[in-house]
Amino acid sequence: MKTLMLGAAMAALSTGVSAQTIGFSQIGSESGWRAAETTVTRQEAEARGIDLRFSDAQQRQENQIAAIRSFVAQGVDAILLAPVVATGWDSVLEEAKEAEIPVVLLDRQVDSSEDLYLTAVGSDLVHEGAVAGQWLVDNKPEGACRVVELQGTTGSSPAIDRANGFRQAIEGTPDIEIVRSQTGDFTRSGGKEVMESFLQAEGGGDNICALYAHNDDMALGAIQAIKEAGIDPGDDILIVSIDAVPDIFKAMAEGDANATVELTPNMAGPAFDALAAYMADGTEPEKFIQTESALYTQDDDPMAQYEARKDLGY
């Protein structure tokens, strides 16, 4: 009986027409990026004809564990999990493994043994900072370049990693010097307030050649501070930041920002691809699939990028 069912299941898989059912346990919608990730995951599933069962955990691990158990009980083909915390997943992941349901982690990692999940899809925060730094190395004006840095929330891993990546990229370029570095708490108002103090402290802004912000929102606040000081952001002071939220593309289209590094909300696309390959012929993916940290500049038709992103829920 069991072999018969297994055989039927294999047959259904091999024909390739069976609509897959995949459960997705999302953390919640605490940020615009998270909301965009949910939207994009749904779009990707629809494009592939996958029946996506979505569960919003509202920031609680117990909700996520309950959702995974429910997915296992429903007998889904695979589970996507964006874990709210790193620890405490062992037993529920083992349950999924016993039911032979592959689990793919999105965006964040867990502290469980690697054989409990198929793979993890995520972005490399150090690499994001390095891409931003490399852009400045390639695009800085002739001569010395004094850079001010708006850091993320002190002690948070994006702030630490994005700072390190940027420094690694500019290491070989003695012309570039980070002269001021302060936290803007990842917020627009924080970015604006800190940028005002940078401008005051650096000769009204005359001594600043570029701004590196750990996220776009701080850059957007800083752009307003620079404008209000009578300086031209994008020309007098180069602006490079990370995340690629819709509003930064608007600023780029207006010539106020220069470059942004994308933290893609499309973690599900690579996850679905890895799952498809695994189910087709058992191809084991790498344990970490790094998403591309694409660089966008004013040459990449920012207005079209804005239009494409503005309805994703950012």
Partner: peptide, 14 residues
Amino acid sequence: VVAADIRGADANNA
């Protein structure tokens, strides 16, 4: 004043 300052309402941080 705060929303006008950044030309946007940031419900999480304002």
